[in-house]
């Protein structure tokens, strides 16, 4: 039985002046230092002893981490230190990335979202992360500063397991870029949780879709699932069916069933694997149906 500390254990707070300095420090203290963004996960893990770092390296405010900007060509770039509410409140985000805004609004509480960051959510790689699905479906690419300079990490290949990613000691995630979604896109995030808001996802289903004349169905559907696999899960087989077959109730049901069969949830204190699988099917069906209705209304 874990008995968490009453407050944070003794730890040093470091505020480097540059990315190079931060990266060097992190690399030199592998396993005992970590980049510090919003802290909403970090504090909890430090209190309960799951993380035993000695140093928190505050990278908020370093080059490119504090800004969020929208460019009609390049899309949305969210600095690593930018709190979720700031992103959600941007008119451009509500207009062009409504699925992200919708997912953000289901995370914890308003006051926590003033600290929690999208990039932090991604770096911690919780399979339950609410915003990760949206970021993946929008084709998100993470910009990372490391020993060898700056590199790009597409989210589709970024996650390796619960809490495990391609990040190495010394790496600092700088920002996330989401390209402008295709014209006519519609999204939906449905979360099954214990409370109506604020809880962790038992199951989270993100769907993004848009017209695509090159496909037999005329539409591209993208699906991401939270909390039902060791990593945030895409469901290509279901997406394929939705690309190839005429979209109707039966096709949607088939895709939902594939989503259910593709996931590998576990039993935990929040829900059983059995319930999770069933909810993946039901909520994928619900999300696809709602998205499909909006697409056809728009058409």
């Amino acid at each position: 039985m874990q008995n968490p500390h009453p407050g944070l254990p003794e730890i040093e707070y470091i505020k480097p002046a540059s990315l190079e300095e931060a990266s060097k420090f992190l690399a030199a203290h592998a396993g005992e230092a970590r980049p510090f963004l919003g802290g909403t996960d970090t504090f909890v893990r430090l209190r309960d002893g799951a993380w035993k770092d000695k140093y928190l390296v505050d990278v908020k405010g370093l080059d490119g981490t504090a800004q969020v900007s929208f460019d009609p060509e390049k899309g949305l770039t969210i600095g690593a230190g930018v709190a979720m509410n700031r992103v959600e409140a941007m008119p451009e985000v509500r207009e062009h990335y409504p699925l992200l805004a919708e997912a953000i609004r289901t995370v914890a509480s308003y006051q926590l979202r003033n600290r929690a960051t999208i990039v932090g959510n991604i770096c911690n790689a919780s399979p339950a992360g609410d915003t990760i699905g949206a970021c993946m479906l929008y084709g998100g690419v993470l910009k990372v500063f490391g020993a060898d300079g700056v590199r790009e990490e597409p989210l589709d290949t970024f996650f390796k397991g619960p809490g495990k990613t391609n990040l190495k000691p010394g790496d600092i995630a700088l920002s996330l870029t989401l390209p402008l979604p295709p014209r006519g896109h519609v999204g939906r995030y449905i979360k099954v949780a214990r409370n109506k808001l604020g809880d962790l996802a038992i199951v989270g289903v993100s769907v993004l879709a848009y017209p695509d004349a090159t496909l037999a169905s005329g539409y591209r559907f993208l699906i991401a699932l939270a909390s039902v696999a060791p990593v945030p899960l895409r469901v290509p087989a279901a997406e394929k069916v939705l690309a190839e077959k005429t979209i109707d109730e039966a096709t949607i049901a088939e895709a939902a069933q594939i989503a259910m069969d593709s996931c590998s949830p576990i039993d935990d204190v929040r829900g059983s694997a059995q319930y999770r699988k069933l909810m993946v099917r039901n909520m994928t069906r619900r999300a696809l149906t709602e998205v499909w209705q909006k697409l056809t209304q728009a058409a």
Partner: peptide, 18 residues
Amino acid sequence: GVMRNPSFVDYRIATAID
């Protein structure tokens, strides 16, 4: 004998929206 949900993360109570 082990309480598996000894925190607000997993012992949920009604919020204003519930």
